[in-house]
Design a protein around this nucleic acid. Sequence first.
DNA 1: GTCTATAATCGGATAGAC
DNA 2: GTCTATCCGATTATAGAC
Lengths: 194, 194
Amino acid sequence: MKSSEKTFTAIVETAYRMFSEYGIAKTTYSMIAEEVGISKPSIYYYFKSKEELINYIFEEVCKAIEFSAFFTLKNFTKDNFKDELVAVGFRMIEEQAKDKHFNRVIQEYLLLASRNKKYIQRFEMVQQEFLVGFEDLLKRGSDLGVTSSVNVHAKAHMLAMILDNIGNFMLLDVKIDYKQVWIEAVATIIRDEV
Amino acid sequence: MKSSEKTFTAIVETAYRMFSEYGIAKTTYSMIAEEVGISKPSIYYYFKSKEELINYIFEEVCKAIEFSAFFTLKNFTKDNFKDELVAVGFRMIEEQAKDKHFNRVIQEYLLLASRNKKYIQRFEMVQQEFLVGFEDLLKRGSDLGVTSSVNVHAKAHMLAMILDNIGNFMLLDVKIDYKQVWIEAVATIIRDEV
DNA sequence: GTCTATAATCGGATAGAC
DNA sequence: GTCTATCCGATTATAGAC
């Protein structure tokens, strides 16, 4: 790794951490520079404005939360459907719990997106992919005969909401057994197919 | 209403709207003053620092989102249990849809709270009240024989998460039939009690 | 690539007149 | 209560040397 790449990475990682700790608006080039150990104007060599840095990290975050980063439709079979669904949910919960900055940065960008056309479209893509992904998954489940075929749409959205909001609850460090909640949610999808 | 009260109200309402539109960090006394039509230092007569203004609006927001502001346990009977649960959820959804600034301001404060001991405790109170409230409600439901008595804890948390996250989805203007999702969620609680 | 120096602007906050 | 004037520190960003 070239020295310039090292600096680039250091800037991005430090900015990400500070976006989480202090918020995007209150994170300044001075703070990042001091933490990285370079001068403030040096950052402008890599990102010609603060906005460009914000954009870059936004794209990184989006890639990390895509539905396809977690779910692979064809991994779900008649025999493993429920277990697989539970397992993937667990993996997402663990991923979120592992990186303590993750949820906060997502929320920061969610707010930014809600105010800014530039971000909102990209975020809607991710969100939509998730809803459609869950819907396809439940359709497959109903084809396989392991889930009900009624209200697939609303059920898919319900699952998406629960998984999504686990991050929100984690923000406040709410003492909940998140995995148990997910098990319960999956069970409501499977259950009425006795 | 005295003139001073009018100014006070104008400051608070303008700040609330601007916290939503631009974020708490990027809302300045200058912006508020200009919008209200007074000078910047005049605001200091009412709020001796920006932090004090932030605190005041935080308290207002907390009062508006308390469980008891929506749910009254004794309104739930054997006959109306499901309908009442659906209806109260609808009322919350409508409340959120009505005030377009509400969700954003909540998310702003959620992030603030996640970084600040001062806010986090108050928010945890609200959150906890909601979780316990739903749990009590489901216990009552199971006493009345309309809901299952298994996994009441996780089910209550699931309901809380769904209702809570509807606001999050609204932020991105996700095209979902929120009421249908809530109906589905309530149904999963009732359903297995055939 | 990284630095020093600096411009231009804006933030929160106070003093003190009316 | 509301104003004008003002302080001080911080912010984004650029110019230009090395």
